[in-house]
C-alpha cells in the first residue's frame, strides 16, 4: 500500500485530484468557522471577546503537533524503506509546521496579555512549544548544511525522529506540571468540557487548518518534485 504511493507519477496524479477538494473544503469550513467564531458564538463570561483568539490558537497548536508527527512519520518511512518521496514530504512539512508553531506562540501571547496579564511565562507548555519551534528551525538548517541532498535528507530524518520525544512532553505538560496554561478541554477522557456553541466553530476551524495543511503540503511536494526534475534536466544538458 505504502509502496504504491511512493511512485512519484502516481503521487502527482492523486495530488492533482486532492488539491482542489481540500482547498475548497478548507475555504468553506474556514469561512463558516470564522463566522461562527467571530459573530455566531457567545463571548466567554470571564474572558469576554478575547476568547475568540482560541479559534485560531488551538487549531494552530494542534496542527503544529500534527505537522511534526507527519514529518517524523515521513522521516521514519524515508529511513526504513528509502523512499525519496518520503524525504520530500518531510522536508515540505517543516516550514508549514514551523509557521503553525509560530502562529500558536504569537496568538497565545496576544491572548495571554489581557487574560494572564503577561505576554509570556516560562511554564512547561509554553517552553516545550518554544523547543518545538527550535526543533523545526534546526531541522530546516540541517537540510541546508550539506551539499549532497541525500546526505542532508538522512541527517534531517534522524533529527526529526530524535525530536519526537518532545511531542508527548508538549501534550502532557499541562497534566504533569502545574502550569498557567489550562489543561486540555477537548481531547480528554470523558468527552469535551467545552460548550457546543464554542466547540462547533473550534472544530470547523481545526478542519480548515487541516485542509490548508494538506493543500499546502501537496503543493510544496509538487514544487519539490518539479525542482528535482529541473535539476536533473539541467545536469543532463550540462553533460550533453
Amino acid at each position: 500500500m505504502l509502496h504504491r504511493f511512493a511512485n512519484p507519477a502516481r503521487f502527482l496524479r492523486i495530488a492533482r485530484w486532492v488539491v482542489p477538494w481540500s482547498a475548497s473544503l478548507g475555504l468553506v469550513s474556514g469561512a463558516a468557522g470564522l463566522y461562527l467564531g467571530l459573530a455566531g458564538s457567545p463571548a466567554d463570561y470571564q474572558q469576554g471577546d478575547t476568547v475568540r483568539i482560541m479559534y485560531v490558537h488551538v487549531p494552530a497548536a494542534w496542527m503544529a503537533l500534527a505537522a511534526y508527527a507527519t514529518m517524523a512519520l515521513a522521516s521514519a518511512v524515508a529511513l526504513i524503506w528509502k523512499h525519496p518521496l518520503a524525504d520530500l514530504i518531510a522536508k515540505s512539512t517543516a516550514p508549514i509546521g514551523a509557521t503553525f508553531t509560530a502562529i500558536a506562540l504569537i496568538t497565545g501571547a496576544l491572548w495571554g496579555q489581557p487574560t494572564w496579564g503577561t505576554w509570556w511565562v516560562w511554564d512547561a507548555r509554553l517552553t516545550s512549544v518554544l523547543i518545538l519551534l527550535f526543533l523545526y528551525v534546526g531541522y530546516l538548517a540541517l537540510w541546508n548544511a550539506f551539499d549532497d541532498p541525500t546526505r542532508a535528507a538522512r541527517a534531517a530524518a534522524v533529527l526529526a525522529l530524535v525530536g519526537v520525544v518532545n511531542l508527548p512532553i508538549i501534550k502532557f505538560s499541562v497534566d504533569w506540571w502545574n502550569t498557567l496554561h489550562q489543561p486540555a478541554s477537548v481531547l480528554k477522557i470523558g468527552g469535551p468540557t467545552i460548550h457546543p456553541a464554542m466547540l462547533t466553530p473550534l472544530l470547523l476551524m481545526a478542519l480548515a487548518f487541516l485542509c490548508y495543511f494538506i493543500t499546502l503540503l501537496l503543493l510544496r511536494v509538487r514544487g519539490e518534485l518539479a525542482a528535482r526534475k529541473l535539476r536533473a534536466l539541467q545536469a543532463a544538458r550540462a553533460e550533453g
Binding site: 527550535f134 534546526g138 538548517a141 540541517l142 548544511a145 550539506f146 546526505r151 534522524v158 533529527l159
Partner: peptide, 18 residues
Amino acid sequence: LTVGARRGGVLLTLLVLP
C-alpha cells in the same frame, strides 16, 4: 548529524541546545 557539514559548529549549537 553534523559530521562533514558546512558551518558544523553553529549548526551543532542549534540542534543540541534545545
